[in-house]
Design a binder for these strands. Sequence first.
DNA 1: TAGTTTCGGAACTTTACAGTTCCGTAATTA
DNA 2: TAATTACGGAACTGTAAAGTTCCGAAACTA
Lengths: 225, 225
Amino acid sequence: MSEMSGNEPVKAQESGDSAEKKPQKVGRKRDHTRDEKILEAAIDILAESSFDGMTMDKVATRAKAGKATMYRRWSSKEQLVRDALAWMNRSHLDLEHLPDSGSLREDLLLLIRPQSIAEEERKLRVLAGLGSFLQHPEFADTGMAGIFDSWADANLQLMKRAAARGEIAEHANLELACWVITSTSAFRGLVERKPFEKTFYADLLDGLVLPALKNPKADSPIAES
Amino acid sequence: MSEMSGNEPVKAQESGDSAEKKPQKVGRKRDHTRDEKILEAAIDILAESSFDGMTMDKVATRAKAGKATMYRRWSSKEQLVRDALAWMNRSHLDLEHLPDSGSLREDLLLLIRPQSIAEEERKLRVLAGLGSFLQHPEFADTGMAGIFDSWADANLQLMKRAAARGEIAEHANLELACWVITSTSAFRGLVERKPFEKTFYADLLDGLVLPALKNPKADSPIAES
DNA sequence: TAGTTTCGGAACTTTACAGTTCCGTAATTA
DNA sequence: TAATTACGGAACTGTAAAGTTCCGAAACTA
């Protein structure tokens, strides 16, 4: 969405008082197609190693860029990684063209495309290697938001339609179900380091999520011991 | 369990051929109570920062130990961290004294004790900061195994008893249910960095796990598209 | 007591990396 | 054409941390 933020050279110049806002610059223009190459290289190396394993020299070499070029655009490694994470999470599922097979189970499974699996697994590898970087609370959101939200949103739409047509109980906790799907899938890739397989996903749906959605009898009160 | 492994000095001495295995050594004995202090300090700092934020100097200072002492016992930072992780995961729930209230929901909730919550959250902080270290597949197991296994095992016992007394369906996928509990809880602390709260756990049980266990009608075949 | 190994602590060496500067070249404007 | 800015690339600086070595003191054995 917003794209970038800590860019542009230091640009700390106030030409006196009568600043007439004339940014008509002289000299060779900055090639902004290099931005993408550098961000892509950064994500690539983050996915292969980790935040600490990603050195600025590696990124520069991978992107065939000079370090001066990088530091002309980002003032630090932290800034570069922050923008690279935003860049990584730029793609979103198209909520306008969701599957509609008439079966919630089929819809949920149809959402899983091999291409998107590989993409999400790459994001998980990046996330796994972020380590100490995520300790900055400001980056915890930047790094996380957008990785799973898109998938969870799509799943929620599918569930709401299923509820509307009476396939699942209307008082089921759909948000919880979506969160369980994304968090368990993330845990599997992030911590267990297993690939996302459709058989695993089908087991999760058949063994837990769909039964709960179809029969969510809340027979237990909220007892706080 | 096994405890330690990469210890002892290099000890590469073969006294000629007639090695009569006489380990009767001379000199001051190694104080193995220092091991625990050092491992504890390492885990402490791992929990506060990360693998890369944990420096050998910090550990030495925290444990009031000399670095020479540390390198006499562990040949590298990697070795120290490996043993520290094993040390961290040494405690296990007592499977012999599980709660037995007659209600699975109550039993599962009774297993959550404030003391064990704090302990597990500390482990999660350590795990979150491991980052690049976990990329070594050999450490992925060391680091992970034992953090959640104990809790999952206890939950499985409780579920099996509930199944035996007919509280839940006997053909329910208990292992899957236990795995979902641990993986979602871990995700919450590890990625979302939220504290473990009983209300969250009760919602997970009431909204998804228990309904699924009580009504696991497998109405959908395994279709591989 | 003499010799050996440990201890905590500090100084030291080495390596790796973030960030800076400079080079020759290419692009842009006046 | 001349001045300016960007480019890739390489050299350079400063710092942080892993690992080593040495110190004086303590603990153990013969």
